[in-house]
């Protein structure tokens, strides 16, 4: 049996127009110490899978087994790194990390608990800034706190939901390095959701492409066999790197031009500028109109 097993995982939301099947019969096995990435478009249901694994979203059908036990609700055995690190603004970075440590290591002495927090905050590069409050930290530094917080609990599994999505590309490269270095030491089984192709290739052992929702499932699985420990430069110079990169970009682009049904596209507060509703769509070429629908 694998360390993590997602079997026939299904998520259905009831809506006024009948049930909306977001994820259907999603099957995935992850070995212990493996780093797997889910890649797919916004609204394809990849975050839904992750949040079910985190126990933050109820499972409609199927089940998840982690280390031989079926999951039921959230718990500190799964460390989650959110897109925005969700730190409590009135306490320092250090105290934010201590919150979880105090819970999980309650049998340990205070000194040891503090040492754990100091260790992880230092390793992520916040040696000088750990006693600052979130408002005094940059977006990238806050995300470092989020990474330290997740690793500090020594979870069985790490769940990363577009962890660097809100950062600029260069800061993103830096934090990927921080993440991979920490991960290398602990080899925590990890599942990450992203739509950044380079990020997926640099970090993972396997990349799982998800089909577009509704009824999203595993589309194809790509093995990424670059030697570990990985250095960005070596990975980028690997003869397979750009082949895999092109393959994933093609996968995403092909999916991009199929308009998502309105029910599953996670359109923001803005009304969808659906071109077909316009009385005179004559100026837009047909392909353009189609793209617009996706952009909404």
């Amino acid at each position: 049996m694998s360390y993590v097993e997602l079997s026939n995982l299904t998520k259905i939301y009831p809506t006024s127009k009948g049930p909306a099947v977001i994820v259907k019969d999603f099957n995935l096995r992850i070995a212990k110490g493996e780093f797997v990435t889910l890649i797919g478009h916004s609204g394809c249901g990849k975050s839904t899978v992750l949040s079910m694994l985190a126990g933050l979203n109820d499972i409609t059908g199927g089940g998840i087994i982690l280390a031989g036990k079926e999951l039921d609700g959230p718990g500190p055995d799964r460390g989650v790194v959110f897109q925005s690190p969700c730190l409590l603004p009135w306490i320092t970075a250090f105290e934010n990390v201590m919150l979880g440590i105090d819970q999980v290591f309650y049998t340990a002495g205070k000194q040891e608990r503090r040492e754990i927090a100091e260790y992880y905050l230092t390793v992520v590069g916040l040696g000088d800034a750990m006693h600052k409050k979130p408002a005094q930290l940059s977006q990238g530094m806050r995300q470092r706190v989020g990474i330290a917080r997740a690793f500090a609990l020594h979870p069985k599994m790490l769940l990363l939901d577009e962890p660097f999505g809100m950062l600029d590309s260069l800061t993103r490269y830096e934090l990927q390095q921080v993440l991979i270095q920490l991960w290398r030491k602990n080899k925590i089984t990890a599942l990450m959701v992203t739509h950044d192709v380079d990020e997926a290739l640099f970090l993972s052992d396997r990349v799982v492409c998800m089909t577009n929702g509704p009824e999203a499932e595993v589309g194809e699985i790509l093995d990424v066999n670059f030697q570990r420990p990985r250095e960005r430069k070596a990975v980028m110079e690997h003869p397979d790197y750009y082949k895999l990169r092109e393959h994933l970009i093609t996968f995403l682009e092909e999916r991009a031009h199929k308009p998502l049904p309105a029910r599953t596209s996670n359109a923001g507060p803005l009304p969808a500028p659906a071109a077909p509703k316009q009385p005179e769509p004559s100026h837009a070429s047909p392909s353009q109109t189609k793209r617009e629908t996706v952009n909404a």
Binding site: F105, E118, H154
Partner: peptide, 14 residues
């Protein structure tokens, strides 16, 4: 900087 990471395991909160 020299850092010490205590070798303690997390408790099962269940």
């Amino acid at each position: 900087k020299r850092l010490v990471l205590p070798d303690i395991e997390p408790e099962d909160l269940r």
